[in-house]
Each structure stands twice: as structure tokens, then as C-alpha cells.
Lab assay of single mutants.
Amino acid sequence: MFKRLMMVALLVIAPLSAATAADQTNPYKLMDEAAQKTFDRLKNEQPQIRANPDYLRTIVDQELLPYVQVKYAGALVLGQYYKSATPAQREAYFAAFREYLKQAYGQALAMYHGQTYQIAPEQPLGDKTIVPIRVTIIDPNGRPPVRLDFQWRKNSQTGNWQAYDMIAEGVSMITTKQNEWGTLLRTKGIDGLTAQLKSISQQKITLEEKK
């Protein structure tokens, strides 16, 4: 169930391209415009997507990853294993993690069937560096609404905000991946996880038929 919630949630996290980005210092504006741009692209490019579902990787690479804190999220997933990894191991892992996100997020976007969304009203940021933004996803086919909290983090150097995690039903996506990959990290280390991520990233994206 959580895996499905995570995939549905990713439908609204794909941010804007650099040329049309919203105010990078306001995570609420980023979330709002990102959702609108993403849904528009999914709707307008269905012919290309249906002809070649792996085209979704391109959308992810162009529109999402430049505005997601990939390395920060990847380091959180590694936890204690990050500090013990060599620079070469980290570089290989982050490259594999990025390719994994292209496949995983692309597969999530393949679930698009006309969903709509509501974003919580903007709250004062103050001096906060981590801000959760509640998004409610509404399914046109009558499924119950899904309420999610996207975690946005302020870059201490640039002042810009980027998304790095999502919490559904009190469970963090980062925590879920830590639990899912924990045994592999304990037995085969970061190299074993890197190899698995490379394998997963090679899987073809498949479209979910409308139910």
C-alpha cells in the first residue's frame, strides 16, 4: 500500500525546468507551479508516452532531478554507511541512485490517469530550513484521497528550496528505503546496493492501464 502511495505522490513532485522555475526561495510556489507544469506535460505528451513509456525517463531527467536534492536524499538512505564509504564508492552510488530515480519516478508518472491535487495554504517560513507541505491527491475514479507531506529543505548556501522526502501515513519514503535496503547494505555494503540500483534502473517502464 505504501509503495502505491509513494508512486501516486511522485506525480506531483516533478519540479519546473530552470527556464520557467518559480521563486526558488518559496517552496509553496515551487510546489504549486511544479504540480501544474507536471500535470500539463503528462496530459499533453501522452502520444509520446504511450508510444514509448521510457520517454518518461527524459521527462524526469529534464523536469524533476535538477530540483530534487538527489545527493542529500541518497546520503540519508545510506545512513551510517555513508561515512564509511570511499569517495569513489559515493560517486558510483550517487550515479546509480540518480539512474534509479529516473526509472522509479518514471514508473510513478506512468500512473497518471487524470488525477488532480490540492496544496495546503502557504504558511510563514520564518527562519525554518525544513518545511512540510501537505498535498491532497484526488483520484477521478473514486479512490479515497491521498494526503501527503512533502519535505522541502532550504539550501544554506543559495537560499533555494528543494524537495527531498515524502511522508505518507506517518511513514517517510527515506525511512522506507532504509528499511528495504538495510539488509543488503549490511551483507554486501554500498557496492552491493550500487549494483542492485544499476540493475533496477535497467527495467523498462510500463504503463498502468486505467481501472
Results as ranks from 00 to 15, higher is better:
residue 2 F to N: 01
residue 2 F to Y: 06
residue 3 K to T: 02
residue 4 R to Y: 15
residue 6 M to G: 01
residue 6 M to H: 00
residue 7 M to R: 03
residue 7 M to K: 05
residue 11 L to V: 06
residue 12 V to L: 14
residue 14 A to N: 09
residue 16 L to P: 04
residue 17 S to V: 13
residue 17 S to Q: 14
residue 19 A to T: 08
residue 19 A to M: 04
residue 20 T to R: 11
residue 21 A to M: 08
residue 21 A to I: 04
residue 23 D to T: 08
residue 24 Q to I: 12
residue 24 Q to G: 13
residue 25 T to F: 08
residue 26 N to E: 09
residue 28 Y to L: 04
residue 29 K to Y: 13
residue 31 M to Q: 06
residue 33 E to G: 04
residue 33 E to N: 07
residue 34 A to H: 04
residue 36 Q to Y: 06
residue 36 Q to I: 10
residue 38 T to A: 06
residue 39 F to M: 02
residue 40 D to A: 12
residue 43 K to D: 11
residue 43 K to V: 06
residue 44 N to P: 05
residue 46 Q to F: 09
residue 47 P to N: 11
residue 48 Q to F: 13
residue 50 R to T: 09
residue 52 N to M: 05
residue 52 N to D: 12
residue 53 P to M: 08
residue 53 P to D: 15
residue 57 R to F: 15
residue 57 R to E: 15
residue 58 T to W: 06
residue 59 I to G: 01
residue 64 L to H: 00
residue 64 L to E: 02
residue 65 L to F: 15
residue 66 P to D: 14
residue 67 Y to E: 07
residue 68 V to C: 11
residue 69 Q to S: 13
residue 71 K to P: 05
residue 74 G to E: 01
residue 74 G to C: 03
residue 77 V to C: 07
residue 77 V to R: 01
residue 78 L to Q: 07
residue 79 G to E: 02
residue 80 Q to Y: 10
residue 82 Y to S: 01
residue 82 Y to K: 00
residue 86 T to E: 13
residue 86 T to Q: 10
residue 89 Q to P: 04
residue 91 E to T: 07
residue 92 A to H: 09
residue 94 F to L: 10
residue 95 A to S: 11
residue 97 F to H: 15
residue 97 F to I: 12
residue 99 E to C: 15
residue 102 K to N: 12
residue 102 K to R: 15
residue 106 G to W: 03
residue 107 Q to G: 12
residue 111 M to C: 05
residue 111 M to R: 03
residue 118 Q to Y: 11
residue 118 Q to S: 13
residue 120 A to W: 15
residue 125 L to Q: 07
residue 129 T to P: 10
residue 129 T to E: 07
residue 130 I to R: 01
residue 130 I to F: 04
residue 132 P to L: 12
residue 132 P to H: 12
residue 135 V to W: 09
residue 137 I to T: 15
residue 141 N to V: 13
residue 143 R to Y: 08
residue 144 P to Y: 12
residue 144 P to T: 06
residue 147 R to M: 02
residue 147 R to E: 01
residue 150 F to C: 07
residue 152 W to D: 00
residue 157 Q to F: 06
residue 157 Q to I: 11
residue 160 N to C: 08
residue 161 W to I: 02
residue 167 I to M: 13
residue 168 A to T: 11
residue 169 E to V: 04
residue 170 G to T: 00
residue 173 M to Q: 02
residue 174 I to T: 11
residue 174 I to K: 02
residue 176 T to M: 02
residue 176 T to A: 03
residue 177 K to V: 14
residue 177 K to A: 13
residue 177 K to I: 14
residue 180 E to R: 01
residue 181 W to S: 15
residue 181 W to H: 15
residue 181 W to C: 10
residue 181 W to D: 14
residue 188 K to T: 11
residue 189 G to T: 06
residue 190 I to L: 05
residue 191 D to L: 04
residue 192 G to Y: 09
residue 193 L to W: 03
residue 197 L to G: 02
residue 201 S to D: 13
residue 201 S to Y: 09
residue 202 Q to G: 09
residue 202 Q to I: 06
residue 203 Q to V: 14
residue 204 K to Y: 06
residue 204 K to W: 07
residue 204 K to D: 12
residue 205 I to V: 13
residue 208 E to Q: 14
residue 208 E to C: 15
residue 211 K to G: 12
